[in-house]
Design a protein around this nucleic acid. Structure first.
Lengths: 104, 104
DNA sequence: TAAATACATGAACAACAATTCATATATACA
DNA sequence: TGTATATATGAATTGTTGTTCATGTATTTA
């Protein structure tokens, strides 16, 4: 069952692992999960997840820098939304794996 | 563009982030990538990736504990293979995202 | 059974990442 | 323009994780 090896550069593999890192933190995955339902303000996210505003802001900055979420200001509030259609796909692929394993 | 919220337990979200963590390390993603082409012995992996045997063994233990790879002994050598069909899918979904972004 | 080979593992160290706390900035509104 | 609200950010602290180095275990073969 040996497939043809894909030729992926070391650099790309590094980027790939960096990318998966964003999903590898509970706080961030909860934020991502929440935003799958639609955009939400920082304070709403913090309240919904029962986290300190500062924690949410810090993690949002990480996601924003990576272009996984994008902010839109409306008055004093800033609404964050997922920036990329792929994110839901990756989230759901991983979720399917977890749920599949849970069944045994 | 608001979707219906999926009801996913905190516990499942935690497991999901733990799962993505395995992909969030350069060494492990390189090992996974290598094993996508088929099973390989520890020493072969180490040689191919130009890593110390100890580094590879440590990371393989992490992947093995998580049931992402499974070992098969043949004499002195131990061959590792990916244990789950989903792994390639997740790898490729992430890869597609990276390559898509590279294009701009 | 002694030596060589292949792999695993424990402990120490170093690097990194997340949270906390205090404070800064930006906007709205009285 | 002063105050309140919403968010961002820097520094310190703490917890986590990967690598290194030394050593242990299993298997083969002379």
């Amino acid at each position: 069952m040996k497939k043809e090896p894909q030729n992926i550069s070391l650099d790309t593999l590094f980027e790939l692992s960096e990318f998966f890192k964003f999903f590898g933190d509970t706080t961030r995955i909860r934020v991502i999960h929440l935003l799958l339902s639609g955009e939400m303000s920082v304070s709403a996210i913090a309240e919904k997840l029962n986290l300190e505003q500062s924690v949410v802001s810090h993690q949002l900055r990480i996601l924003r820098t990576a272009n996984l979420v994008k902010p839109t200001r409306d008055g004093r509030k800033i609404y964050y939304a997922l920036d990329d259609e792929h994110i839901g796909e990756i989230f759901n692929t991983g979720l399917a794996h977890i749920l599949h394993k849970k069944k045994g």
